[in-house]
Simulated assay, not measured.
Amino acid sequence: MKFTAVASALLVASASAFAPAATTERASTALNMDRRAAFGAIAGAALVVAPSIASADGAISAATIQRAKFTYGSRIAALKSAVSKGDFGAVAAEKNAFVLFNSGVYPRAKDKDAKNAAIAGTNAIFAAIRSKDTAALKAAYDSYVTANDIKEPAPLSPDVGQGYSSDYDYRVRTKQAAVYVR
């Protein structure tokens, strides 16, 4: 929207430069501008337009939040047996799943408190890993899973319905990847 306003302003400015003079004298057709001034004007217009070009919103929607919750929540839920065994290495290997879950499920400004709580839960899990405390790891993991409503997705039977429709769906190669075929 900003781009169209700036573009229309530039269009009006360039059109007025070529408008006929209002006096009865014949105007000179020579441009009274050297190259340095012309490139300065172009660079100035580019600086005005440039900030509006790169204004992406991060594609935050209910679908991207659901996708992050499914993708990274599944990885976190799969750590349940490793946590119960006290396998610190397996949990530490999935550190990125925790980080990506926190940033993907709580991307909006209104979710700031929930995101801070999730980050605090992640920090508690990794503090237990650093101290090699199995009981603290179990408690922190259970608290994190409960607070963020993380569940292992139930397998979907092809008899019940279809789980995905293309190879680009986030449920491909998971328990939810069922395709109904007659």
Rank of each mutant, 00 (worst) to 15 (best):
A135M: 08
R67D: 00
G104Y: 01
T29C: 14
A62G: 13
S165I: 14
R130G: 05
K151S: 13
P153H: 12
L47P: 12
G73S: 03
R171E: 00
A178G: 14
A21E: 09
R35V: 10
A7K: 04
R108I: 01
D87W: 01
R108C: 00
R173T: 08
Y168T: 08
N102M: 01
L137V: 10
Y106C: 07
D113L: 04
R182M: 07
F18H: 13
E25W: 11
S165Q: 11
S103E: 13
S16A: 15
A93P: 03
P155H: 01
S84Y: 07
E25Q: 10
I119S: 11
R75M: 10
V91L: 10
A50M: 09
A136Q: 03
Y106L: 06
T24K: 15
F101W: 04
A41E: 15
G44W: 00
I125T: 10
V48R: 06
P20N: 10
Q66W: 11
R130W: 08
A41Y: 11
A124D: 08
K2N: 15
A21T: 09
R130Q: 07
Q66E: 11
E94I: 02
A78N: 10
K151Y: 13
R108E: 13
V172Q: 04
A128M: 01
A135C: 01
A154M: 11
S8T: 15
K80L: 10
N96C: 03
S74E: 02
N32C: 14
F88V: 02
L156C: 03
S16N: 14
L10P: 00
A127S: 13
I76A: 09
A45W: 12
A118D: 00
A41T: 05
A46R: 05
I76C: 14
S131L: 05
A63Q: 06
A114P: 09
Y144T: 00
E152W: 05
Y164F: 07
A120F: 02
A46E: 12
G121H: 05
R171Q: 08
D57F: 12
K112I: 10
A13F: 08
N148E: 06
A77W: 09
E152H: 06
A154C: 11
F126H: 00
L137A: 04
A118Q: 01
S14T: 14
A7P: 00
A77E: 15
T71S: 05
I125F: 00
A154V: 11
T64N: 15
R26G: 14
D142Q: 02
A59Y: 09
A128D: 00
V6Q: 07
Q176D: 09
D149E: 07
